[in-house]
Design a protein around this nucleic acid. Sequence first.
DNA 1: GTGTTGAGTATTTTT
DNA 2: TACTCAACAC
Length: 728
Amino acid sequence: MLDLSKLNHNQLKAVTADDGPILIIAGAGTGKTRVLTTRIAYLIEHEGYDPQRILAFTFTNKAASEMRNRINNMLINNYVPWIGTYHSICLKILKQDINALGREQNFNIIDEHDQLGIISDIYKEGEIYAKDIKPKKALEVIEKIKTAEIDITKINSIHQLKELGIYKWESFPTFKYIVAQYEKKLLRNNLVDFNDLLILTHKLLAEHVVVREKWQNKFDYILVDEFQDTNYMQFRLLNLLINPNKQNVFAVGDPDQTIYTWRGAYPNIFDDYLNNFKHTKTYVLDLNYRSTKKILKVANSLIAHNQQRIEKDLVTNNDFGDNVICYIGDTSQQESHYIVQQIAGMIKNKSYAYHEIAVLYRAKHLSRNIEQELINNNIPYYVFGDIRFYQRREIKDLISYLKVLVKPNDEIALKRIINVPTRGIGQKTVDAIHKYATANNLSFYEVLVKCANDEIDSEWNKKNIKTFMLLLERLTNEPKSGALVDTLQFIINATKYKDYLKELDQFEERWDNVTELIASLAEYQSKYPNNNMANFLDEISLYTDSNDAKLHARNSVSLMTIHFAKGTEFKVVFIIGMNEDIFPSSRTLQEDDLEEERRIAYVAITRSMHKLYLTCNLAFSPIAANKLTPSRFLKEIGKDKYHEEHSEMISISKADLQWYDSEKPFVVEEQYSDTNIKFKIGDVIVHTLFGSGVIVGINGDMLDVAFKAPWGVKSLIKNHKSIKRLKN
DNA sequence: GTGTTGAGTATTTTT
DNA sequence: TACTCAACAC
């Protein structure tokens, strides 16, 4: 039942606002999601809107399903609006109307893994030796030009090229060839990547008036969550979907939480919105319900350092709460040890449960140290987004089987399963079939059919290919009981997939995943009895994580990247790796994206309800090719806002902590020439060619010094003139 | 031709 | 540490 009594003044005004464009600037923890969901319920229950004619955009699938649940609980009937990510809404539109663009409706969506496969095919066919552009790099740049809508034919300076991440002009023709081939292959196989979902839908709506009007008339009201992370393409898409006569649009966002500029989000979008919808009513939510006063102080003082920003401070009626703690460890082990001890303490005195605690970090690989320490102490944890459910080998294998049954010409899926479980059709054979297919203008599958019919004269192992084709035939002709799950079960049995998994490591976990896939297929069918396998495959092609991640996390400490943590909250939050070059990351420092890094830190801090820990360590790090220093963000927050703790055995020298007092942490000593000066392990030196490095070993007159990549560890003569030591 | 093992190298963020 | 790629054994 709709209950408006729990809303505060501003929230109530936003929820009950009249029709027409509305913009909500909502700080972290100010009840943004509550406002959005209550608004939808209000529109339906109070204003008489038809739920099926309401469209809501969310940023993640997770957020979409949460919103669906919340609205379901608020409403009496079961009709729920269209809620989804831009990508999933685009998919629905394209599945209905892509014909207008002259393409077939049975297109498949490819993920990053598939994209890389396609690119390495291109490398093989074009005999490209990936010296200066590796496949991963090529994909990264392709993604960049597609999201930023860059026309590569117009690139004519090395400067523009460098901005894309290609540093040699000679590499450009190769890259252009790769891009052209990539697009050609996608089109030929009727494939669509994530960017294409947006690009094609935009094209469809922009160029085809009839289609556009159809969709504009379909929706009476459009809502947008996480508006700050909308990119320009998505914004134009939104504009094409909004019925121009009604302009019923309701966007909620927080400019301080823009953390996806690398995916095309841009700060000016709030201005664009106000310019596009002239009569927009704006409401600001700044009363925070989530965090203690002390935590908000930390958040506010950090984000205040951003120059390009609409000033706003979060306020709260909550208590001051416990001190925010900044821990500085000697080594990463000590950092992890400290965190795990704190967690163990909280559990022991029953102040918090595992699931109320989160460890957040800037980049995935940072979870490593802490994981080991958690294992050592028997603390249950769950790493979110670790290996995404649908990226797992066993899941991809089985889904590929399903895909091939739906569409035998699905080359990617076919190539994946042709030798899984192993049946003697290896890479060489696959390459040969591929080559033959290209040369004779046949599909991969058609060549297999011909081969099985003895219509091809070749050296291939025909017996194995025939066995495989017979298997496919058996799977296809399997008497259809109508239950999708039976098809999957049949595949598992016919291929002896379970036995295959037993040969691999982590069998139990893999088999659990298979069971989960079976369950989710069963659930899908009971939810949508009229949908077929193709519908299921389309749906999950946009999913990355399983719905049950929450289940796994029920009684464990949560580990996740800050990007993943967006939209969540925890009673206790540890932000680890608060080090210069880690957070802010060295890469963004080069690219001058410090403000975005600060916003990411702001998002992390504002996840916390009761207790906040900022931790770092001062060990040697190959990332920095140096001893780590504490993050500048700690300095910006201000020492008075938190309580500082050090590891007991800490050997912090003055230089290590100089960041408190000066901008530059190290002072270069006079050039070294006196043989009497003694070096010790851990000393930082500067080499004229290799830059700064740390001494990791001393053998007589030789020093082993670790330098930044690509140099690595070098042995140098102790008193060579190219070495300078840093003052400690 | 296929599958396995070991050395070498690279590390932001996600739909 | 995790992933790729090349060399080796089957």
